[in-house]
Computed example of a mutant assay.
Amino acid sequence: MKLKPLAVVLCLATLGMAGCSSKYVAPEEYSGFLKSYQLLKEEKSPSGEAVMRWIKPGVNASQFTSVFIEPSQLYPKPQPTEKVPQKTLNGITTYYDQSLKTQFAKALPLASGPGPRVLVVRPAITAVSAKTKGLQPYEVIPIALVAAGVSAATGIRDQDTSIATEAAFLDGGSNEVVAQVVRKGAGAELDNSSQVMSANDAKAVIDGWARDMVKSFEALKK
């Protein structure tokens, strides 16, 4: 893993100060799941959320007559923690698959595999974290599971949860990448440091991602 630039370290050291954090995923947080990140630009999703996105110029979305959702991945493979156990990770990917299929089925028939005129959606969950609200975590490891260490004195405070995704969209006939997106979102708050994060805490964020992906596709068709 590459070392973060000094400016990033200084920013993290003052986490919580106005102007330091960003709703966009920063380059040092990219997981390596996508083949290239150079063309990503700061954009707004159809729902108005911050995303890093690239769409191939001139792509004809109308050429796709069905869609294949590849099983979502956890990338890189994380180590479960007491705060974010394996059951939660499995639940998040399972729900991501379900939500993508539900939303895309409103726009295109679901295909059983890639092929000509098939849009392939290749998604990954690249970060899941939980940290004490208003406090900086003891470690910042993007693209990994992060559970902030808290003392008994601060354990009663609410905990913020967050999740990030990267997704590639491919032409199922040529295997050419036609679009990419990187984004993150805030999950449900946990009551305290002893509460374990569950997949339910991320469902609203995941549903929003899936809806935005479909709306972006439909906008391209117009």
Rank of each mutant, 00 (worst) to 15 (best):
I55L: 04
E70L: 05
K56S: 13
P109K: 03
A111N: 08
G115E: 05
T132H: 01
L39I: 00
V120Q: 08
A50Q: 08
A7V: 09
T93V: 15
P123S: 09
Q79E: 14
Y75E: 08
I69S: 02
P46K: 12
P57S: 08
V25N: 01
A105I: 09
T88N: 07
I55V: 15
P78A: 08
G115D: 06
M52H: 10
V84E: 11
K77V: 13
A50G: 03
F68G: 08
K106V: 10
L110T: 05
A7D: 12
K56N: 10
Q73V: 10
L39G: 05
S62N: 15
Q98F: 11
L110H: 09
Y75W: 14
A105G: 08
I92A: 12
R53V: 03
V120T: 13
G91E: 13
Q38T: 13
A13D: 06
Y24C: 02
F104R: 07
K101W: 05
V9Q: 14
E82L: 13
P80C: 12
A130L: 05
K106S: 14
S45H: 03
P46I: 09
L110A: 08
P109Q: 03
I69V: 06
G58Q: 07
P80D: 10
D97V: 06
P114D: 12
L100K: 09
T94Y: 11
T102D: 13
P114C: 11
G58K: 07
P116M: 12
A13T: 04
P57C: 08
